[in-house]
Design a protein around this nucleic acid. Structure first.
Lengths: 149, 149
DNA sequence: CCAATATTGTTGCGTATGCAACCATATCTG
DNA sequence: CAGATATGGTTGCATACGCAACAATATTGG
């Protein structure tokens, strides 16, 4: 009878890794910036300066649309995100960081980047490359690579 | 001003990957075996035949203890898991699969294994090795490698 | 061009989740 | 050994979440 061997089971390992890293990262933005995970995802997505619709953020972050809807509503109340009618689609709203949101992210992003850098600094450059290459090929295989898909 | 570039941000990529894979896997055990994620985690952990305490499962799976507590209570009701006093610690309970639980896992595990195999079969053997090596080194760096830790 | 269908986003509702308080037992410290 | 503190596990409570229904707009097909 085949045994599972959970510690070597890829879905288990990826979950555990993602959860651990997500916890450490959220400790940064939760405490100092009063953001929960959905709010962080919205802001991080909008950080590229592009205009996004809620639906695009849903697809890109794999978060339920009701969760994104509520996060956006809250971020708008806090004047971190602006929401205006989409010019081509009357159902959609285009989202952007406000200048206040921009300012917040300008302080938060260096922290996030240095968190990532610190994480990767513990790996040898070979391991680092292996990791990103391996992840990339799995992403391709799962169709997770496209932008705004 | 540094920009985040979310699509290349490691925490984001790992989360997305883990979520996608977790969704596909849970489609297998949810539908056919009426298990939710916490229940699956408990059963998958117990699959190795060892005796586990709830606390050990909590630590190993990074799931909140109240969630594990409720999952175990439910699995015991369904007679998939047995719970007896821990011999050395009066507070703890040792958990094991019942024969019914064993039978369920004997049907479920081949499906989980072949899901994993199919996932990995889309990668070249180099990519496969890169992925597992890269993950392993990150696990070591985060202290996620120990057993029952 | 109109009816049927799909899509964007919001919201009410039930439920699963995490937190915190708690009980029982274990361990640590003077 | 006794009091203080820590740990395993459960449970009440508040809340965040996903689901499904919905309104509004878009798109498709006859």
């Amino acid at each position: 009878m085949p045994t599972l061997d959970l510690p070597s089971f890829l879905p288990f390992r990826l979950n555990r890794l993602a959860a651990e890293i997500s916890d450490r990262l959220s400790a940064i933005y939760a405490e100092r910036f009063d953001l929960d995970i959905p709010a962080w995802r919205v802001l991080a997505t909008l950080d590229d300066g592009e205009e996004w619709t809620a639906q695009e953020i849903v697809a890109s972050t794999r978060t339920h649309k009701s969760t994104i809807s509520r996060a956006v509503a809250d971020l708008e109340k806090r004047k971190l995100v602006s929401r205006v009618q989409h010019e081509a689609d009357g159902r959609a709203m285009t989202l952007q960081l406000t200048s206040r949101g921009r300012q917040l992210m300008d302080r938060l992003i260096p922290l996030a980047k240095s968190f990532e850098a610190e994480l990767l600094s513990t790996l040898t450059s070979v391991d680092r490359r292996n990791l990103t290459d391996g992840i990339a090929s799995l992403e391709r295989s799962l169709g997770l690579s496209g932008d705004k898909t």
